[in-house]
Each structure stands twice: as structure tokens, then as C-alpha cells.
Design a binder for these strands. Structure first.
Lengths: 203, 203
DNA sequence: CTGAAACCTGAACCGGGATTCAACTTCGGT
DNA sequence: ACCGAAGTTGAATCCCGGTTCAGGTTTCAG
């Protein structure tokens, strides 16, 4: 975890170098704690222990347990985007790009199994963050596909529904083949989905 | 809510008529409470108030808060299946059947918005129930598609990956177009997905 | 009718953990 | 050097809700 501290809106901004260091410690500890135990089982005191700071220090930087969580959702959201984005360019066409996106996402999920315990648990802890994350993900997908349509690579009638369908696929495949069990190579899974996305399921 | 009480394994089985009535009251109250507030915000005392019984009565039927929740997940899971299954037959082919399944699911989600606060929150409260539900859903989809493949209606290489992809699509579309916002007719959404499933996204 | 099992009641218990705060230490600019 | 701001500390406070239980009521088989 080496997110830019600037990314963590909602946190009180440290004025000194020491403060920045401490905030980073707390943030990383929180990601680990929430990732392992989920929001409700996680404890502020456990977070501060992990971080190696006193309990009260936490409240120098965050107003509440919910506040760190929100900051983390935002951060993870950006991490996913930044990890997937570069893998999209250099693909043959818009459909191949979505396949590459899925492959990158599964890889990310394997390396950051805490992602579901943070972003997805937000559905039940901090709906606003959850919706924002997925809506913007959908927006990016739809934009990419429409550009592909303009280039004649995909059908013309791309809409939000396609975006939500693809996000849903990716999320569940990431959970099943990234977090729960690492059977199957990401490339193969992405390949299967790619074929389905390109030609459909008909024989 | 009028689930068969027999469906609720995990609950202590009532011996008298009065007992069966009370258990049903608690179960329905719990579904409403969990549906509105989510697992952690829900309260046993609030459930018993809704049900119109004393606090202690709850523990005549369930060992813990988790226990009712598990019973409810199982019950909702069966309700979804029973609502979707009949809509699958009478469709033109295996691909059309999946479209019909999605349409039925969105309808169910609109009528039972508590579904995500129960089945999906189980990912963070009772993983075993969550996995069982989705694995069996995937199994059903894969079985259907393979039968379709045998009839020459879909491609031969159907595997688990296709099943998880379809479930993921359905879950996210149900959340977006069933629970969050009812814009768009289920038939249209299902139609869009159907076209995608049949022919893919290529022009 | 009757007595034992089944059921119901709700006040009291209890543990856990989020949040506060007043005293103390370190930092950084002058 | 010095001082105000920034940061740190952890014991104490506070609240909340899940669970227990001893005593009462209802049911129903015989």
C-alpha cells in the first residue's frame, strides 16, 4: 500500500512530515484490518495497534470509523482504476480491451484480496461510496465501448445496460477466480469471456 | 412473506400450532427488519417489537442473531429460485431462457428489495450461506446451458466461467434496475442482454 | 380434568468497543 | 534557544444491544 496521501479526502490533512507518516501508517493498518475482518469486526484499537500508534491518535486524523472506511473505499477504487487502465491500451479492438480489463482485474483481486471486504462491503456501510465507485466504472466501460462503436469495432447500440452487465461479470469472476480460489489462469478466464463478448453463446 | 416454515432449517421446530404462528411472525419481522436496516443495524428487540412478541421469545426459536439471518438467506434463496424457475420453460431456446430468467429476477428484485440486504450481505455475515446460494445458482445455469448445447442451441464449450459471468450480470442488473431505480422495463433490459448473449458485441 | 411440556415475558446482566480528553512530547520557524 | 502549533498518549467514559433466566401462562394428550 503506497497510495498518495492526497488521495484520502476526508482525513484531516497533516501539517508536518511526522503527521504524514503517521496518517499513512493508520491508513495501511486500516486497509489490512478491514480487509481481514470486515467493517464490523474490525476495531479502531486493533488498527492503531497494527499501526503502532496510540488509540487516541486515530482521532487526530479521522472523525469516526466510517470516515476511514470511506477514505479507503475511495483509495481502493482509484487503485483498481490505475491498475487496469494501462492494460487496456495496445489491445486489438474495444472488445479485446474489455477482456484485458477483466484479466487485469482478476490479477489485482489476487494481489489485493481485501478489495471485496472494502469496496463491496461499502454497499452495506457507505452506499454513497459504493454507488459512486460502480457508476464511474460503468461510465468508463460505456465510454470505451462507444468509442469502439465509432470505430466500427462493436455494435452501435451500446448503453448503460451493457456497462452494468460487464461490471457484474467482472465482479463475480474476480470474486470466484481471484479471491475464493485461484484455479484457472486469468488469461484463460478472460479469453472465455472475450469469446462470449465477441460472438455470443450461439453455436 | 409466507414461506413454508419447514424451509427454515436452523430454527427450533415448534410443537404446537401457536408455536408455528409465532415463529412465522418472527421470521417475517426479521426479513423486514434486516431488509430495511441491514444485519448490523437490525436489532433483536426491534424484530420482536415488529412481531408483537416479547424479547425473550426470540430465543425460544433461534440461538442467535446469526441464526435467523442464516435461515432467512436460505429462505430467500429458495424464493428466488421458485420465482424464476417457472418462467424458464416455454422459451424458444436456451439463450432465450436466460433472458427470461433475468427478466424474472429483476421483477423479483423490484418486489423484494430486501433481497440484497439479505443474500448479498451474507457475503460479510455468513459466507457459507452466500457461497452455497451462488454456487447452486451457477450450477443451475450451467446445467441449462449444457442441455441447450446438447440440443445445438448454444456453443459446446460451456463451463463454470460462463455461469459466473451470467450470475454476475444478473446480480448487478438486478441491483441497478430493480432495487436502486426502476427506470427501464425489465423486458427491454432482458432483451438487450439477450441480444448480447446471443450474438455478442461485434457489429 | 389435569399435569407436564411448550411457550411467553421482560427486567437485568454483560461485554465490547467507539469516542473523548487533559496532560505530555515533538516539531519547525524565527 | 524558544515558543506556539502540531502531534501523541491511553485511561476513563459511555452507550448499546445481544443474551440469559426465573417465574408465569397456555396448550393438549390421556
Amino acid at each position: 500500500m503506497d497510495e498518495a496521501v492526497s488521495a484520502t479526502a476526508g482525513a484531516r490533512v497533516p501539517r508536518t512530515e511526522r503527521g504524514r507518516r503517521t496518517l499513512r501508517l493508520i491508513l495501511d493498518a486500516a486497509a489490512a484490518e478491514f480487509g481481514e475482518r470486515g467493517f464490523h469486526e474490525a476495531g479502531i484499537s486493533r488498527i492503531t495497534q497494527r499501526a503502532g500508534v496510540a488509540l487516541g491518535t486515530f482521532y487526530t486524523y479521522f472523525d469516526s470509523k466510517e470516515a476511514v472506511f470511506t477514505a479507503l473505499v475511495r483509495d481502493m477504487s482509484m487503485q483498481v482504476r490505475d491498475h487496469v487502465a494501462p492494460r487496456l491500451s495496445g489491445t486489438a479492438d474495444a472488445i479485446a480491451a474489455e477482456g484485458a480489463g477483466l484479466e487485469a482485474f482478476i490479477g489485482f483481486a489476487r494481489a489485493h484480496k481485501e478489495i471485496y471486504r472494502i469496496i463491496d462491503e461499502a454497499e452495506f456501510v457507505d452506499q454513497a461510496s459504493f454507488r459512486t465507485h460502480y457508476q464511474s466504472t460503468v461510465d468508463r466501460i460505456v465510454t470505451r465501448l462507444r468509442r469502439g462503436a465509432a470505430r466500427g469495432e462493436v455494435r452501435e447500440d451500446i448503453g448503460e445496460v451493457h456497462g452494468w452487465a460487464i461490471v457484474g461479470m467482472n465482479v463475480f469472476l474476480g470474486l470466484r477466480y481471484g479471491v475464493w480460489n485461484e484455479d484457472g489462469a486469468p488469461e484463460e478466464i478472460a479469453g472465455t469471456v472475450n469469446a462470449m463478448l465477441r460472438d455470443g453463446l450461439k453455436p
